[in-house]
Write a protein that binds this DNA or RNA. Structure first.
Lengths: 326, 326
DNA sequence: TTGTAAGCGTTATCAC
DNA sequence: GTGATAACGCTTACAA
């Protein structure tokens, strides 16, 4: 591959002039420029980005640390984040952690190594001790002191779910969701606010007795059989708010397997929305947290770092989208 | 951040010695090494990977060009590819194309720019003119002359689907799938072999009349209403093979909406399998193409390039996994 | 064993 | 307008 030196030699100019041409910087006589452009075309020269990163001291790569890309919402979020960053001229490095803190730490280390410029955090592990605020960090759905946080309005989502179930005539409510932090007291994610908002609103509206089904964070896909048994032991429950659409889908499947009908006997609201469960037989009524807008907010924070602007937290509004399960 | 020079100065040695220590290369006296290691620890020195790439002329980054990460199978495949590559010491850059050839071309250009070392191709566009065989390329589900191809055994998948439907008592078969190449004659993907295998096997077993519902490639998610109408116009059909699980899900939903039952009236087989539709109410009988093994095959090809070994095509076996739709 | 110095391919600062 | 030349932070001959 030809490099800038070859081009300069072939064009009979200095490398600085070639650099000016490819960067559209500084003054270059028209003829010189045209000559150089011709040579560049002739030898198919393309500037080496590694060398550029070397002098620029940055590589325009953003790492996205994510539990997996298998979970529907994560896949969607990644898609929009990549689009957003690409649009802004940055590349996205996927970093699936499989929820393992060791992998997460190794991803965080990429910042020191200059492998990536910045990092988007999405985790339920206790990585606080590994975070160095001197690096450009953004966190999704989780507060770390001094690090900008992007999140959907989880609390409001819980409130909306409560109101909707009440309006739909439900009287005995239940919340189903993992405890996210897996018993680790240090870890509190914004996702917990879905539960809080739900409980608070129900209390305000005169429904103080809500069943809370909480279980350790699993693999984001299947719900343990024991959880299903706990759910069905509350025969009077007629309104359920599940922490995510995938949990909702599992819950619905199980309820129907036991012979009760959704939404006739039990109504179910999930969280995530979007196209997540578009081709599921039954469309889940869900609190819609728009991945595109979340990605856009994340993009702004990242851009802020590149522009030496410090940005604050961003809470993205949610709305309830009615489906076939309420 | 401290660099190798700082470390050398603080330790009172030359930078070459520090380099030897961090790379475990060459001879270094024990005491010198220990001294350097202490200094490294003290000032938290970590080698700059950009600079390393500069000399190494490679950055250990692999680009994965993929239509999107929203489609369940793609999300899963990406997950396993990233795991596999990470395991081998390479980083994965996600490159969602949204099926746009312009984006794909810009991703291919990253090779020339040294932004990535190699590229995994997953596309239905006519990118043949943009591929330069001097670069390390791997293609998934698509043959390009001179480029190693990893694919599941699509033909065999079609055969298995045909046999299963016959054994399940179906007599009037249908294939439903996009034409992938969108009418572009130049583009023929391996995915088409699902159709071929299905038709061939049916013919061999004495079912020459198969309905073929073909439509232009869309967004991988929703099936156009017109396609649903074409499907239902064949009232005698009792066995359907869909090109993917997401298409199968759409087809099933529509059939049931019109009042026919799956699998009682119509049996449906999809393609992809895995955990893709795990939390769908009804589990789809599907040709399982294991993303983990595909990722592993891709990893081997990539590794081959780094080791200066040329690898050949890899066809990953598939199997039919019975669900609730047949 | 260890240090000096020449790359790696750019960008940017100076003189001219 | 333009061309040397010094960074950028590392690896690796080659000397010592």
């Amino acid at each position: 591959m030809a490099n800038i030196k070859d081009v300069a030699k072939k064009a009979g100019v200095g490398i600085a002039t070639v650099s000016r041409v490819i960067n559209h910087s500084g003054y270059v006589k028209k003829e010189t420029r045209e000559k150089i452009e011709r040579v560049i075309r002739e030898c198919g020269y393309v500037p080496n980005e590694i060398a550029r990163s070397m002098t620029a001291q940055k590589n325009l790569i953003v790492a996205f640390m994510i539990p997996n890309t298998t979970h529907r919402f994560f896949g969607e979020l990644l898609y929009h984040v990549e689009m957003e960053l690409d649009h802004r001229g940055y590349k996205t490095m996927v970093c699936s952690s499989s929820e393992q803190i060791e992998k997460e730490i190794s991803y965080i280390d990429m910042l020191k190594k200059n492998r990536v410029d910045s990092l988007i955090l999405l985790t339920n592990n206790d990585i606080e001790p590994y975070l160095d605020r001197r690096f450009p960090l953004v966190s999704f759905d989780r507060r770390f002191k001094g690090i900008p946080c992007v999140t959907s309005d989880n609390y409001q989502g819980g409130v909306l779910a409560a109101r909707h179930l009440i309006e739909s005539g439900c009287r005995h409510m239940m919340f189903v969701g993992d405890d996210a932090q897996g018993g680790k007291a240090e870890v509190i994610t914004e996702v917990n606010k879905r539960r809080e908002g739900f409980f608070d609103e129900l209390k305000r509206q005169g429904y103080p007795d809500v069943v809370n089904i909480e279980y350790p964070l699993g693999n984001y896909i299947a719900l343990p059989e024991s959880v299903h048994r706990r759910i069905e032991s509350y025969a009077e429950v007629d309104g359920i708010f599940a922490i995510s659409d995938s949990v909702a889908a599992e819950v619905i499947k199980n309820i129907e397997r036991r012979g009760r009908l959704v939404p006739e006997d039990v109504k179910v609201v999930g969280y995530d929305g979007g196209t997540s469960f578009l081709n599921l037989g039954k469309r889940i009524t869900s609190i819609d947290q728009p991945p595109k807008e979340i990605a856009s907010a994340i993009g702004e924070v990242i851009q802020g770092y590149y522009d030496n602007r410090k940005t604050g937290d961003r809470i993205v509004p949610v709305k309830l989208v009615k489906g076939d399960t309420t």
